[in-house]
Design a protein around this nucleic acid. Structure first.
Lengths: 143, 143
DNA sequence: TTTACTGCAAAATTTTTGCATTAAC
DNA sequence: GTTAATGCAAAAATTTTGCAGTAAA
């Protein structure tokens, strides 16, 4: 069975000699229980409601650690803010983004993934990860 | 035969009642003759060499116009800078990005495009455009 | 002349960092 | 005791805007 993200991060932390703190636990819990695709700012505001003591810089630095540990990934949807999404090792999240209402739908498609590997191979690339975003108008906004 | 990007932009400009200026011509020429994927800053620096009078804000606003006219598109590779790439109507540029040396290789793949349309249709989306980036290590850096 | 464009500098955003203090090991 | 983490506030880096002067229609 897969390790939980919490476990993965704890392993990462101890392997790096990082200390375990109340703040990091709080941020990790909130991050995991929150929606995908939150920006640093958004997560910070959510956390501040229950834990007013936590500062923006701590959230900022902790999210960077999450990305480094592999449980999260930075993404940019072109709105000027860096966002973080949950990431399970080996998982991919591709996105449908509605240009009108901002709705984000996730999808996975094995065949596309395979084709991507082929393209990479043809060009001599070893793929580490990828990003696929389809921008358009969603069902609701269309009707 | 396809309209040139220059032509497309001129049509766009006149349809919008925009005036034709020396600066915009200069910026358009440099943009078209320059490498793909330049940031505003980078293009500004290139232009300043030959036309020292042109200001950053003009380059910035002109690139926005290029994007609006359809001859360019904003992209983000996650390095904190917005970049602009050339875009022919109906064309897509997907990218292989080397995480080590930063090399960018463009590719197109019809089958992937078709699958994307299917995914979008399945979710009730009408696609306007898309972004596909494969991150990895390129042939040179691998060897 | 009327309207848009330019260049400058200032403002607004967002990301990143320095540092004294606090807390974990 | 050491070493890392935190919170604040300041600094950097980018993007965006206001405005007076300039140039195009």
């Amino acid at each position: 069975m897969k390790l939980s993200k919490k476990q993965i991060f704890q392993d990462f932390a101890s392997s790096k000699g990082l200390k375990s703190t109340k703040q990091r636990d709080t941020i990790l819990d909130c991050f995991l229980s929150c929606d995908q695709h939150l920006s640093t700012e958004e997560l910070y505001l959510k956390i501040k409601k229950n834990s007013p003591g936590i500062g923006f810089a701590t959230v900022y630095r902790t999210l960077k650690l999450f990305a480094e540990s592999g449980i999260a990934r930075e993404i940019q949807f072109g709105d000027g803010q860096t966002r973080y999404e949950h990431l399970q090792a080996g998982e991919h999240h591709d996105h449908l983004v509605c240009k009108r209402c901002g709705a984000i739908v996730e999808f996975e498609n094995e065949t596309i993934e395979k084709l991507q590997s082929e393209v990479a191979r043809d060009h001599g690339f070893t793929i580490i990860n990828h990003k696929l975003e389809l921008y358009g108008i969603c069902k609701n906004c269309n009707s």
